[in-house]
Design a binder for these strands. Structure first.
Lengths: 214, 214
DNA sequence: TGTACATCAGTGAACGCGCGTTCACTGATGTAC
DNA sequence: TGTACATCAGTGAACGCGCGTTCACTGATGTAC
C-alpha cells in the first residue's frame, strides 16, 4: 500500500530522461527497504510517488521484473560495499574480520527490509536465483560471502597452523551466526537480544584462539 | 499460481460440514509449505483445489485473515510438537538438547516452506505479531523457544556450576545458530552446507565442556 | 405412513478494486535548411 | 531570422485479469406432526 499522493514534478530537460530511471530505482528501493517484500511493490504506486504516470516507467524498463532486478542488484552492491568499507578500517586481519562482521549486522540492523530482500528466504522467480555453487559465483549476493571468505583467509595466513584450517568452513559458520542473528532481529525486533558486538567478539576471539600454536 | 483444476467432490453428509474446514486448512497448509509465501495464497485457488466454490469458505471462516491465522497457528503447534518429540528420545539432558536441535533442523529441512512461514522474516499484519517479550509469550511460535530454554536449563541443572550460567542467553545463541543454518539452507539449497549433525554436535559439546568443573 | 418444513452444505453471478501493460497521443525543445 | 520537422519526455484512457467478498439462491435431508 502506498499512501503518498502525486507529487508535483517538472519534467526532465531534453537529454536528461535517464534521470527518471534513477528516481524510479530510488523510490522502489525505499519501498522495498520499508516493506521487506518484493511482492508488495506496484508500478503504479512507484510512479505515483515519483509523480509520473505509470506508463512512463516503460520508457526505462521493459517490465516490472526488470525494474525489480535492477533495484535488487543495486542493493546487493551497496551491501557488499558497505561491509568491505567497514572491514577496511581494521588495522590487522582479525580486526578487519570483526569489523566486517559488525558491518554485516549494522547494515541488517539499520535497513532490515533491505537485508530481508537480499538474504531473507522469500525469493521469487523474478529475482536472481542464488542457488549456485559458491565458487561459481556471478551472483552479486554471494560476492559478499566471497568477501567473508577472503577476510578469514587473511587471518589464517597470519598463523603457521593456518593451513590446517578451511577458510570456507569457518566462513559458513560465521555467516550462519551473522545471518541467524540478523534475520531473527528483523523478525522479532522487541526480543531482548544481546549486543552484536558481544556475539561477534566472542566468536572472533574463539577463532583467534584456535590459531595459536599449542 | 494454482494449477490444479477442479476436483470432483461429493458434498459432506448432514452434520459433517466441519469436514470442509479441515480440508481447507490442509490444502492451504500444503500450498504455504510449497510456496513459503503467505501472500501467494488465494481463497479462490484453495477452493478450486478442494473442489468447492469460493464462497463456501465463508461458511467456515469469516475472511481470508482468519483462515491464514488458523493454518499458521496449526503449523506452529506441529513444529513445537515435532521438536519436543525428537528431544524426548534423548537419554540425558545433553542428549535431549542435541536431539532437539537436530529436530529443529530436520523440520526446517523437510518442510522449508513451512519453516519459512513460521520463522522467516516475511510476516504481515494478518499473522500473529511475534514481537513480544519472550517471557510474556502467548505466541505459539515462541513456545518452541520456551522448549529450547527448558532443555538448556535441564542441562545446567546437572552441573554444580550451572547456576553461574544463563539459560536464556545460551538459548539465544543456540537459536541463532539453528535459525541461521535453517534459513540459509532454505534460501540456498545447492550450497555445499556442512551436515547439521556436525554443527549441532560441535556446539553442544562446547556447551557441555563449559559446564565441567575446572 | 405421509407430508410440510426447517436446516444444512453448498452454488452462480456479480460487485468493485488494483494490478501490469498497451495504445495512440501531446506538447515542449533542439536542429536543419 | 524564420520555419518545418524530428526527437524527446512524458500522458490519459482503456484492456483483461484475478482477487476478496456479498447476495440471493438451490436442492438434499432429517424431523415434527
Amino acid at each position: 500500500m502506498i499512501t503518498a499522493g502525486k507529487r508535483r514534478r517538472t519534467r526532465n530537460p531534453r537529454g536528461e530522461g535517464e534521470r527518471l530511471r534513477a528516481e524510479l530505482l530510488d523510490v522502489a528501493a525505499r519501498h522495498l527497504a520499508e516493506s521487506g517484500d518484493v511482492e508488495q511493490l506496484s508500478l503504479r504506486g512507484i510512479a505515483a510517488e515519483v509523480g509520473v504516470a505509470a506508463p512512463s516507467i516503460y520508457n526505462h524498463f521493459p517490465n516490472k521484473s526488470a525494474l525489480l532486478k535492477a533495484v535488487v542488484d543495486r542493493e546487493f552492491e551497496a551491501f557488499d560495499e558497505y561491509v568491505r568499507a567497514r572491514a577496511a578500517r581494521g588495522k590487522d586481519p582479525f580486526d578487519r574480520l570483526r569489523r566486517g562482521g559488525l558491518g554485516y549486522l549494522a547494515f541488517a540492523g539499520e535497513r532490515p527490509g533491505a537485508y530481508t530482500i537480499l538474504f531473507g528466504t522469500r525469493r521469487n522467480e523474478s529475482m536472481p536465483p542464488l542457488d549456485v555453487q559458491w565458487h561459481e559465483v556471478d551472483d552479486p549476493g554471494l560476492a559478499a560471502f566471497g568477501t567473508l571468505v577472503s577476510l578469514i583467509q587473511d587471518c589464517l595466513d597470519t598463523s603457521p597452523v593456518g593451513r590446517q584450517h578451511d577458510a570456507f568452513l569457518i566462513a559458513v559458520e560465521g555467516w550462519t551466526l551473522l545471518h541467524g542473528l540478523a534475520d531473527l532481529k528483523a523478525t522479532l525486533p522487541s526480543f531482548p537480544w544481546p549486543s552484536s558486538k558481544r556475539l561477534v567478539d566472542a566468536w572472533a576471539e574463539r577463532f583467534q584462539d584456535s590459531l595459536r600454536t599449542t
